[in-house]
Design a protein around this nucleic acid. Sequence first.
DNA 1: GGTGCATTTTGACATATATCAAACCATCAT
DNA 2: ATGATGGTTTGATATATGTCAAAATGCACC
Lengths: 241, 241
Amino acid sequence: MPQPASIYHSKSVCSSCNLAELCLPLDLSNNELLKLDELSMLKRDFSRGDYLYRNGDKFRSLFAIHSGSFKTQILHEDGREQVTGFQMTGEIIGLDAISTDIHACEAVAMENSVVCELPFNKLESLSRQIPSLQRHLHKIMSREIVRDQGIMLLLGSMRAEERLAAFLLNLSQRFSTRGLSATQFQLRMSRQEIGSYLGLKLETVSRAFSHFQNERLINVKVRTIEIIDLPGLQTCLNASR
Amino acid sequence: MPQPASIYHSKSVCSSCNLAELCLPLDLSNNELLKLDELSMLKRDFSRGDYLYRNGDKFRSLFAIHSGSFKTQILHEDGREQVTGFQMTGEIIGLDAISTDIHACEAVAMENSVVCELPFNKLESLSRQIPSLQRHLHKIMSREIVRDQGIMLLLGSMRAEERLAAFLLNLSQRFSTRGLSATQFQLRMSRQEIGSYLGLKLETVSRAFSHFQNERLINVKVRTIEIIDLPGLQTCLNASR
DNA sequence: GGTGCATTTTGACATATATCAAACCATCAT
DNA sequence: ATGATGGTTTGATATATGTCAAAATGCACC
């Protein structure tokens, strides 16, 4: 059972976690920034495969991914498991556990990663004092709901290649909003993990990749992908049945 | 374009909306109850087919369903649409719109219904003053996330009959927590709507119903259903592939 | 009570994706 | 480099669900 390699403290939220969607968009007064220091976040390192939290763990904190990426997956009693999301640098993870105080899924690092811990009761007390933080927290939770409902649409009414196209375009967009290349990036997840997320078997995912390759929409070599024809990929989505 | 039939005011939140999951579980002081009156909720009537909100509507309020039930559905640009949830009496609806201030889906009454409107900025200001309300609001949002992720598991890894069994058991449970019969109830939604929600065609839903009927698990007659063998239905779910 | 329309059921057939299996390829340690 | 290991690709076949069509049923309206 792997453990985080190091734990160290940080005084200022936004210097330690500039990218975190939680703090970045807020326009705070000096006074409010001072209050934010109350969060006194812990930073923790993770290696590929490490658990950020496990099914059944007590909930205490949300986490801002400072660098790296994670996957979250739910485990059904009968052994079925499914990837429910991939979380990238700058995103917030752990929202699932607020409802019951117990984590309903597990989060695993897909590469070496650094995470800022945000104790939730401090977050709540701060957001009582800073309305813009409160509103932002609500938005983040609501966005997660909208996102999940988008996946429901995908799983419920799209065919295999449409699902993969939607997935790749989504990844592309998330990279580009972080100022990274929207057309060339690493796939940190396996075909099996992509398949689990998209409700497909890994063979189907692989075939869809191959097909896109043949159609000269992408250039994929195992974990490295380049999107050659972005508009072309987008039209895949509109090709309704 | 149907409009709500009547609008009238209510002074006390919890007398008008006893069932709403928002207020019910809170143990509030008199002082706090007084503050809750600030919400000064509007009650509105809806007939079957009326829209509570539409795609693109400006977001102002959450809604507590006082009686009746709604469905929410998202519309994809290419005409695809999918039911993302069924909301029953006592439940909160509208969480999707917080993230963008614009409703990302539409909500339609499945029967004659009464709804309490909860202006969101008042809710936010109240929850800044009443920590237990704040926490409860967070829990409701988080629960929606967990619920949606459950549907993702269902859509991604369950076969048609497992999906329907899960759906019926979920309905049953929601009725029973409201003190209603867990084994006999009306299906307010069509086969097509159930199918849309479960990622299936209506014919497949119908066949699954027929099969459960033959297996003597349920007794279904179009919109009326009786669960005869509840444990039997539950084992459907464990029958993994 | 009968007529017409919409929903549901049932059937025959088509097809997308799963399954099973083998070959291929990258990565890592020896 | 060499071999072992696990992920990936590709192929052949099976199967669950979709599609199309018709009959049956329920429901509203005259």
